[in-house]
């Protein structure tokens, strides 16, 4: 069992923790943080397993993918935060409205 795989398992741990919080926590800011942590977990799986190259430098393709992913994540986070602000402004609640209450 190599360190690389252990880091990947840590990434899975982050993914699972984030998913738990995304489902369980009600405050939207907490949900946005949870999604970011889940994303970091996936990036960690991608990058850690790229270091399984035998004696050579690590595989650069997942590194490029993760950089792409980080930029996408900040874009999504910015949009989510503005939406959150607008939701609080219009409803006064920092959480999702109950879908059944019309």
């Amino acid at each position: 069992m190599s360190v690389a795989v252990l880091y990947a398992v840590t990434g899975l741990g982050l993914f699972s923790l984030g998913l738990y919080a995304l489902i369980v926590r009600a405050h939207l800011l907490r949900k946005i943080l949870a999604l970011n942590i889940m994303g970091s977990g996936v990036f960690l799986v991608l990058t850690a397993l790229a270091r399984r190259a035998p004696d050579g430098p690590p595989d650069p393709v997942p590194h490029a993918m993760v950089i792409t992913g980080i930029v996408v994540a900040v874009a999504a986070t910015a949009l989510a935060l503005v939406l959150l602000r607008r939701v609080v402004e219009t409803t006064g609640q920092p959480r999702l409205p109950d879908p059944d209450s019309e």
Partner: peptide, 20 residues
């Protein structure tokens, strides 16, 4: 950095931690 991904480290520090 530990995973030999300095490019990702730079992007993470600047974008992931800093700007987010």
């Amino acid at each position: 950095v530990r995973l030999d991904a300095p490019d990702v480290a730079l992007a993470e520090a600047a974008i992931g931690a800093g700007l987010t």
